Computed example of a mutant assay.
Amino acid sequence: MTVDTAPRLERLTRSLPSMLADLETLVRCESPTGDPSATSRCADAVAELGIRLLRSHPQRLEHGGAAQLRWRFGRGDRVLLLGHLDTVWPLGGSDALDGATVLITTDEEVGSSAARTLIQDEARRNQAVLVLEASADGGAHAEGEHVLASSMPERAALLAELVADLAGARP
């Protein structure tokens, strides 16, 4: 059976500007864990998006002095989708993305032969590189002075360090 994906792709393409606007809303809504007013503002933003996109109002719950949101759909309790709306950086920390480059390639699964020189050129331009998918061996890959962490714990630790450095949270 062949599935015609063209209509779905067309719908997603038409929706791209609004999806990017929604993403920008969420990215700009800083919500450090320890700042109840900031997390409350972020909960408001997430609730507004949820109401529009899911056509359902969330329950707003206060637990531990912080705003929580819960949507329930249908009958019964079959699946819990768990997410969070607090950020790892302090207020003003999203400004730390100034100077960041995001590179998305299309041939990583086959060794990045087409994008290799582009990746290497971009890596040389930047002070640090964070690769979001592990190498085939599961180990770190060194490229000049850049070490690319490839295991999930290595990536999480490196990302936390980079965010802290960029946000000025560490000396």
Rank of each mutant, 00 (worst) to 15 (best):
W89Q: 13
Q68M: 10
V163A: 10
S37L: 03
R11T: 09
R170E: 12
P58F: 04
T101S: 11
R155N: 03
T33A: 11
A156W: 00
A169I: 07
T2G: 02
V3N: 01
A164E: 04
V79A: 10
R72P: 03
G34Y: 07
E143F: 05
D4S: 05
A157F: 02
H146Y: 05
L97C: 11
T106L: 09
T87L: 09
D35K: 02
G64N: 14
G64S: 10
L80M: 13
D98P: 00
T13L: 10
W71F: 13
C29Q: 09
E48M: 05
A157L: 04
T105Q: 03
S31T: 07
R75E: 15
A156S: 01
S40Q: 09
A140K: 03
R28M: 12
A160D: 13
C29V: 02
V110N: 10
L9R: 05
R116W: 10
P36Q: 00
A167M: 07
T5M: 08
I51E: 14
D165T: 14
S15V: 01
H57C: 06
G83W: 05
H146E: 02
H146V: 03
P90C: 06
S15E: 12
L166S: 12
Q120W: 10
V163T: 07
E48F: 00
E133A: 06
A45H: 04
G138F: 04
D35R: 06
D22C: 02
N126P: 03
S40T: 14
R124L: 13
E143R: 02
S37M: 03
L26I: 13
R116I: 08
S150H: 03
C29S: 14
V79D: 04
L54Q: 07
V147D: 00
L97Y: 06
H84N: 08
V129E: 01
P7M: 02
A67Q: 11
H63K: 15
L9D: 05
L69M: 08
T2I: 14
R78S: 14
P36Y: 01
G111S: 08
Q59L: 15
D165G: 04
A96S: 15
G65K: 07
T33F: 11
S94E: 07
D165K: 14
C29T: 11
T5R: 03
R125T: 12
L49V: 11
A114T: 15
Q120M: 12
A128Y: 08
A156L: 07
R124S: 15
A128F: 10
L166G: 02
S37R: 06
V88R: 14
V102A: 06
E133D: 10
L162N: 02
S40K: 10
L148T: 01
A157W: 01
Q59E: 15
R11A: 15
R116V: 12
E154N: 01
I119N: 04
G99H: 01
G111C: 07
D4K: 08
A157Q: 07
T106S: 15
A136Q: 10
T106H: 09
I104R: 01
R60L: 09
T2S: 11
A96W: 02
R41V: 04
T33W: 05
